[in-house]
Amino acid sequence: MNTELIVALISGGIALVSAGFAMWGQFTSARLAADLQNLQLAEARRLEREKTVSRYREPLARAAHDLQSRLYNILAQGFMHLSAENKTERERSYVLNNTVYLIAQYFAWTEIIRRDIQHIDLGTEEETTKLARLQDNTYRLWQTDRFGSLFRVFAGEQRAIGERMIIETPRGPECIGYSAFLDQNLSEKDPLLNALREDVRECSASLEEARPRLIAIQNVLIDLLDFLDPNYVRFPKERRRKVGQ
């Protein structure tokens, strides 16, 4: 084999190897670019999910905390009994209207979540399913007939009360504040809220009848709080005692 042929074969081999390396480099670059794009998309989805969660998690947790706290005071601290002994109209009015408001506020935030995003996507199917189950438990406890008629609120009524309390703001839908609730006399104008007012009035004299339902609701609200704020960042552990345990 002459020298020129050998040189040509070597040159051809080098060219093939170089072409192979070039193709491998292009393939690797394309794969890295695709991986980077996928990571960027995943991060964007994560940030959007966190934004959505933070938008709804805290007000839902706040509404659950406020309501369970009031139920605890009613069930374990004699709140309704003491209110019946109050001599001032201001105190009686606060007990009545604020209790109705706290119930309606919770319905409002559950309705906002149902309407806007159906449920909070927490990133994993297990976590999301657990939250949906906790929310469903509260719907069920309000509407079941096994606790009698006092504080029985059907699922559609829960939604209707929630809708009545929702206002649109630049940040999106929110629940009206207590001041606006009082200014609009909502609990007197709306038949469903007025029914809640009557239940609160009756509860002061018939707490034992209301106790089983209110205990069950208070307990599941604590479970919801433990899920939404597991590290006790916003709501301290000592304020989350379940009645009956």
Rank of each mutant, 00 (worst) to 15 (best):
V53N: 10
A64N: 03
R46L: 14
E50V: 08
K51L: 14
R49S: 03
I117M: 08
P59V: 03
R45D: 13
G20S: 09
N86V: 06
E48Q: 11
H81K: 11
N97K: 09
M23P: 01
P59H: 01
G12P: 03
K51W: 08
E58R: 07
L82R: 10
S54A: 11
I74F: 01
Q105P: 04
R62V: 11
Q26A: 10
Q118M: 15
S69H: 00
I113G: 14
S18V: 09
I10N: 01
R45H: 10
A44I: 05
L39H: 12
A64C: 04
E85G: 06
L16V: 11
R49T: 04
A104V: 07
E48V: 04
T99K: 07
Q77C: 09
A30K: 14
H65Q: 03
A22T: 13
Q40V: 02
E48Y: 03
E48L: 10
L67D: 00
H81W: 09
D116T: 15
M23F: 12
I14E: 02
M80R: 05
L82G: 12
F21K: 10
A19T: 09
I103P: 03
F79H: 07
E43C: 06
I120V: 15
H65K: 04
L60A: 04
R70H: 07
I120C: 13
D35C: 05
N73Y: 04
Q77V: 05
E43H: 14
